[in-house]
Design a protein around this nucleic acid. Structure first.
Lengths: 203, 203
DNA sequence: GGTAAAATCGAACGATAGTTCGAAAATTCG
DNA sequence: CGAATTTTCGAACTATCGTTCGATTTTACC
């Protein structure tokens, strides 16, 4: 008899995914073995294949989750902003949201950024599209702000985007909760990117 | 009889190292196999062990070379600067030097940054010291500039350093020679970091 | 509580990993 | 050229990889 999909397997599936993210992050794609992932999830290697039919499907799921969480969070945060928000406010919210998300989903974010270059090409190409979509969201924030005259007209916004994303993604590598708050980091970053390091001209 | 070390082996050793950097960059630490590295170097797997006595020694050599090239280049560039150079000039030179080096040594730089988190702990700890040394050089540039009053007193220089190094290291991932010049990238980055994105107040 | 379905196990498969080592080839130099 | 040395090869070893699959245990439902 046909039964509705039961919920007991979902908890195991989640444990497997979490374990996979951690192991992929620490060991890379090839270095992450199914046996270690299974062990971290409290299973034996063979049992993984009940939930994911191959290692490639596992890494693909990890990449999906890491990227989609980031995109979804940014979309939601921007949508929650009042319509008359300044470009600076939008940029600051984007900073905070990005860092908050990649810290909260640390295992997935680090796994994604560290392992992306090592994954089989088929999978990488597939996820590059999602990455590009995310880049487009940032491009929109920056160019709109420039068109409104809130950002310096002479600034190269493509370079700005690459600088910002490089700096923000790097936070996942060094940020340790407890030492500094996410708010401190993002507001500090925003201050530099918006106002620069140079001391104001003395009059 | 004892003979002086001959030079014929050095060329092979270099070919092995170059091949290793490429393969480590593309496949990660565990994914890079000795057989593929040997093949890229025009040798058979067993022959690698004449030059390096283990895979760990190989990756260690790649990490060394990647990091030391960057450190050496920055040291030299700063030393070549006139003694009365402004902090802004020093920072711009550091930008340019860092990017130029990691682009020139692309295989080693990317291998280093991608593989660092996957390497056996003994090796990683060893190279963390060298990394810290490099961070210290940047810290010096930034705090000195701040003490001289050339950089905003309110700016958090630790965050500035993390932002800058994150952004600069990320260039190795996206920079494609031909499209944009290194000079364009570094001067664009420097403009943002020094002067900020915000449009000047209208009076 | 019993029974069907879901979930896990455990042993095994071929493939390939890092590494070793004696033999073979290439190089150097008198 | 020929002998000593340097460099490379190729086959082999053990370990472990991803994966499969029938047996077994656990779970859900009447």
């Amino acid at each position: 008899m046909m039964t509705k999909p039961l919920a007991k397997s979902a908890v195991s599936q989640q444990r497997v995914l979490d374990a996979a993210a951690r192991v992929f992050r620490d060991c890379g794609y090839a270095g992450a073995t199914m046996r270690v992932i299974a062990d971290q999830a409290g299973l034996k290697a063979g049992s993984l294949y009940y939930h994911y039919k191959s290692k490639d499907e596992l890494i693909s799921a990890v990449l999906d989750l890491g990227m989609n969480a980031t995109i979804g969070a940014l979309k939601a945060a921007l949508a929650a902003l009042p319509a008359d928000a300044t470009a600076r406010q939008r940029l600051e919210v984007a900073f905070r949201t990005h860092v908050t998300t990649i810290i909260a989903n640390g295992d997935y974010s680090l796994a994604t950024s560290r392992v992306f270059g090592q994954v089989p090409e088929v999978i990488r190409v597939q996820h590059e599209k999602v990455r590009d979509l995310y880049g487009l969201m940032w491009r929109e924030i920056l160019t709109t702000g420039q068109q409104r005259g809130e950002f310096r007209a002479t600034a190269n916004m493509t370079l700005a985007r690459l600088l910002i994303l490089g700096a923000l993604n790097w936070t996942a590598e060094w940020f340790k909760p407890g030492t500094r708050s996410i708010e401190d980091v993002t507001s500090g970053f925003a201050a530099i990117v918006m106002d620069g390091l140079a001391a104001p001209d003395q009059l």
